[in-house]
Simulated assay, not measured.
Amino acid sequence: MAKFAVGKIAMVAVIACLLVGSAPQVGATITCTQVTNLLTPCISYGVFGGTVSKECCTGIYKLNAAYKTKEDIRQACSCVKDGAAMIPGINYDRINEIPGKCGTKCPYKVYPDTDCSRVA
């Protein structure tokens, strides 16, 4: 059973990396590749629950520190939204709990119908 879970997490990480490598929005300095690299450790919590890893929280802190403009926030929101949509079994409520569990905040909530162009 553990091998299946590890294999599923690896598959989800690969899918996320492949699907969120899109070009950044004009004016944004954050790329989807950066967002994916920072947040990949959070995927297992988003799918399976349990405990949010230290690596996930570190990624959240680094992403929050990387925001320089509203466009950066909007770009990150789009990257997270698009990536999450490709992950089988993702739980959006869990995704949105992660910043609080890490002791920080996120400037947006991610759901399938989130309009990232209006965040910030």
Rank of each mutant, 00 (worst) to 15 (best):
6 V>I: 08
53 S>M: 07
13 A>F: 00
107 P>L: 05
103 G>K: 09
6 V>L: 04
75 Q>K: 10
56 C>E: 03
98 I>A: 02
30 I>Y: 04
50 G>M: 03
110 V>K: 02
34 Q>F: 03
45 Y>I: 11
77 C>A: 07
1 M>P: 12
13 A>L: 09
114 T>V: 09
3 K>H: 14
17 C>Y: 15
18 L>N: 14
8 K>I: 02
56 C>W: 05
16 A>V: 06
53 S>R: 03
31 T>H: 07
22 S>L: 15
119 V>H: 02
58 T>H: 08
84 A>K: 00
41 P>A: 02
19 L>T: 12
111 Y>M: 04
19 L>D: 00
100 G>E: 07
25 Q>H: 14
79 C>K: 01
104 T>M: 08
94 R>G: 03
29 T>N: 10
45 Y>A: 07
89 G>W: 02
115 D>R: 08
16 A>R: 02
84 A>E: 08
37 N>I: 04
120 A>L: 09
54 K>M: 13
114 T>E: 03
83 G>E: 06
55 E>I: 01
11 M>H: 11
111 Y>L: 09
60 I>G: 00
68 K>Y: 09
1 M>Q: 13
70 K>A: 13
17 C>M: 15
66 A>Y: 01
53 S>W: 03
76 A>K: 00
97 E>K: 12
119 V>C: 06
115 D>I: 08
50 G>N: 09
100 G>A: 15
75 Q>L: 06
3 K>E: 15
90 I>W: 02
102 C>P: 12
81 K>D: 00
34 Q>H: 05
92 Y>D: 12
66 A>S: 11
80 V>F: 01
100 G>F: 04
30 I>K: 01
96 N>T: 00
15 I>E: 01
19 L>V: 11
